[in-house]
Design a protein around this nucleic acid. Structure first.
Lengths: 236, 236
DNA sequence: GATTTTTTTCACACCTTCCTCACACCACCC
DNA sequence: GGGTGGTGTGAGGAAGGTGTGAAAAAAATC
């Protein structure tokens, strides 16, 4: 599969940065469309149906969150958010309404490309079956709700599966604590992270090879959690 | 077998989404009927006898669960549920009353098509093959309704076979208590788990090598039960 | 109608799941 | 160095679901 199959929409008001991004992506064989404003971005997204959207949060004409919400209403296309380090709350907000990942400015080329690859991988990978997760020694089949370890089956409780499933739906992407709590517990419980923390712990204990040093279920401090998969296991 | 054999009923109030669905399905050679309300949906389902129903849960005129219940009362047609919320409770509810699968909005075209294919495949391959179950020392032939143990035949009552059959239809997967009660006793009895618990007990007594420590007929606390098969017996 | 089988019901002990709490820890900032 | 906010940890307890044995009720059989 070649990168030329992928069309990426860049929504960025700064002309210079826009140009840098285009050059970087095109030199990696991605096809690129640009939009200088949020308004244009929404239109281009509808028109071109890109495979990935890279959107700056600091747009002059609209809140970044609005752009994301509009697109999310009809499409699951991965959205990568560019944010300045000072806009922490804005960033979390963007993730909450459906962005997939963020890159803080200034960023390095390899970093951005890695995020782009990860996001595209998530989108293209088997949407037909709930994924089989591979945690080194432990394998989780979310569809059948079975978890096999080296010494037989590992038992997960309903809520544990629910939390894991929320993370698995966006493998490799960030899931905010809000999203996790809302999806696993329900909106009433929003803001109460105690339960979540407990469940992350037991999940690590049951799944991670070394629970003290999480390798797959990693913390994104101040934001949420991210489920990583082995590169080898990701391709098939 | 061509897709044109299949008639799909879409029950969706949002005209735009309805149109998207129609286009998507028709471009894959499916035949399509539409209904804008739940009331219409029930009528169309009775009239056209579709091979698959795609129903939005968030209908304006009735609970999604009611639509499913009405249809399920007279037909085993596969029902695919569209859900805006990612909320588990909604989905569990839908599956409990008889939906076959769910897709959360927003969804991608390949994802929906994959679910449609899977649902139709499940429906067409019918209930022909009732598997031979192997419980270590006891073997059950559900088709012939015979159960052989180490010391001759073991006798199972009609209801015992029925409960076991429900579990066997979904070997390896979790079957909720509600599903079991609905399929073995009928919808009137839903919510009353006493009988089920009794039958699980006797089934274990008759089939398990060590009834105190279930190995094949295992409990999924808070959800239901699952029938596990031996590794060796699983492959064939 | 009597006997046997099957199904339903009940109460209680037991176990799992889930929630909660207090505190240790870590990174970062002043 | 001492905050400060967020996260990880272990243990305890409440709530509710599940297993159990036996006995009553219903249905099937002779």
């Amino acid at each position: 599969m070649t990168n030329a199959m992928f069309l990426i929409l860049i929504v960025e008001d700064d002309a210079e940065l826009r140009s840098i991004l285009r050059t970087l992506l095109e030199s990696n064989q991605y096809r690129v469309v640009e939009a200088a404003t949020g308004e244009r971005g929404i239109i281009e997204a509808r028109g071109h149906r890109p495979d990935l959207i890279i959107a700056d949060l600091g747009l002059p004409d609209m809140e970044g969150a609005r752009l994301i919400g509009e697109v999310r209403a009809y499409s699951p296309v991965p959205i990568l958010v560019l944010s300045a380090r000072t806009m922490e709350s804005e960033k979390i907000r963007a993730l909450d309404v459906g962005a997939d990942d963020y890159v803080t400015k200034p960023f390095s080329a390899p970093e951005l490309l890695a995020r782009v690859r990860a996001a595209l991988r998530r989108a293209t990978r088997g949407s037909d079956t709930l994924p089989l997760l591979n945690f080194g020694r432990v394998a989780v089949d979310l569809g059948a709700r079975t978890t096999m370890g080296p010494v037989g089956e590992v038992h997960l409780t309903p809520l544990e599966y629910r939390v894991l499933e929320c993370l698995a739906r966006r493998v490799g992407m960030i899931v905010t604590q809000k999203q996790l709590i809302r999806d696993a517990w329900g909106p009433e419980r929003m803001g109460d992270t105690r339960g979540l923390r407990s469940y992350i712990k037991t999940l690590r204990q049951k799944l991670e090879p070394d629970p003290g040093r999480p390798r797959y279920l990693v913390t994104e401090a101040g934001v949420g959690y991210r489920l990583r998969v082995d590169e080898a296991a990701a391709e098939r």
